[in-house]
Amino acid sequence: MLTLEFVPYSEIAGLSSIGRIRKLLNLAKEDKIVIVQGRLRKEEEAELIKATMEEINKDFKGIELAVIYPEDSEQNGFFSSIKSKLVNALVGDAQGLTVIGPASVVKEIKKDPHKIQIYTSRRRSKRRKK
């Protein structure tokens, strides 16, 4: 069974960078496709990749990651751009969507760049017997 979990921005807004990364990575490690309202900071995306690499083992093969962001918000005027950068730096960015899926479930995420297509694996990885 494929599980999608939606994480509203309010759930990660108050967390530290490490807290956000840990929360999202833990959900992905539970074999869930996580759809997050908003996006991580660029530095946090890099940290998420680093944290993912540290966790890779025979059961967890990593993640697929994609961010979709409204184009016009990046191409607004000078003052809007400064304002949005300031807000992003202070409280993060609630615009757009971030999709994180475990590599065992998500084969590929394609961006077009205005839409995201998630291709799931036909065969799920076997769960370990307890």
């Binding site: 900071r41 660029k42 530095e43 995306e45 890099a46 990749i49 990651l65 994609a66 961010v67 995420i109 394609k110 961006k111 077009d112 760049p113």
Partner: peptide, 17 residues
């Protein structure tokens, strides 16, 4: 290959930041 991958965007975004 497809240039719109998140790895490409993350690398470039981090250099820009």
């Amino acid at each position: 290959k497809d240039p719109y991958t998140q790895v490409n965007l993350t690398i470039i975004g981090n250099l820009q930041a």
